[in-house]
């Protein structure tokens, strides 16, 4: 989806705002937003790409106008609502800061405190056995295809149509676009490097390069 989250190359946001003290969280609720999002993610009710898709498909003005963890909370509520884990009435009460008596929901795999360290250390690797040989090799010239899928994608707009060079081959990984639709499909994953001058014309420094990590179906031989 050509959403406002796809920010590479946008202009007008002003300087990077650096903080001198850099607190990890800026309010108590941000802490809980992190913990609740990770804990609910661990139930397996959705996968990481569905979670990203939920954030990135928020209405554009809401996305741009919300702080990072406010986006997380909005997406978390949306995912739970879509899966019938919470009701619209329950969320309406939550938005008023109140909780009606919680109706029993479906049984989920609940992450217990004693399992947290192991679960985090294990993570969720997305590498998978490759079904066939890699379609590209280091040094190959490839074009990022001119794709504008309406669903979730990880191909940033600023590289589409441009030709770059394969500089990394990472084996087969779950394809994010399909995974966001609940399908496990493994594709070869590549790092493709582009010249900044090619991407940005006169605004790009001819010395510099920019890479993205791109699945095979994002690319064609050039």
């Amino acid at each position: 989806m050509n959403g406002v989250h796809d920010m590479g190359g946008l202009q007008g946001f002003g300087p990077v705002q650096l903080e001198t003290d850099e607190p990890l969280f800026h309010a108590a609720w941000e802490r809980r937003a992190l913990g609740l999002t990770l804990a609910m993610g661990a139930t397996g009710a959705w996968n990481i790409d569905q979670s990203r898709a939920a954030r990135e498909s928020l209405p554009p003005a809401q996305y741009l106008g919300s702080s990072y963890y406010a986006i997380w909370i909005a997406a978390l509520e949306r995912l739970m609502r879509q899966r019938g884990l919470v009701t619209a009435d329950e969320l309406a009460a939550v938005h008023q800061g109140t909780v009606a008596a919680a109706a029993a929901g479906p049984a989920l795999r609940v992450l217990r405190a004693g399992e947290v360290d192991t679960a985090l250390a294990r993570g969720t690797p997305v590498s998978r056995p490759a079904a066939g040989p890699a379609p590209f090799a280091i040094g190959d010239r490839v074009r990022a295809r001119n794709l504008h899928p309406p669903g979730h994608t990880r191909l940033p707009r600023y590289v589409r149509g441009h030709v770059g060079t394969v500089v990394g081959v990472h084996g087969a990984h779950l394809f994010a676009d399909a995974h966001a639709e609940g399908r496990d499909e493994a594709q070869w994953l590549f790092t493709v490097e582009f010249s900044a001058a090619d991407l940005w014309g006169p605004q790009g420094d001819p010395r510099d390069r920019v890479s993205v990590d791109a699945w095979a179906s994002y690319l064609e031989a050039a």
Binding site: G35, A103, A107, V110, L111, V116
Partner: peptide, 12 residues
Amino acid sequence: KGYVDPAAVDRL
């Protein structure tokens, strides 16, 4: 609703 163990949230 029994989805979340608050002690797990603390630990995270």
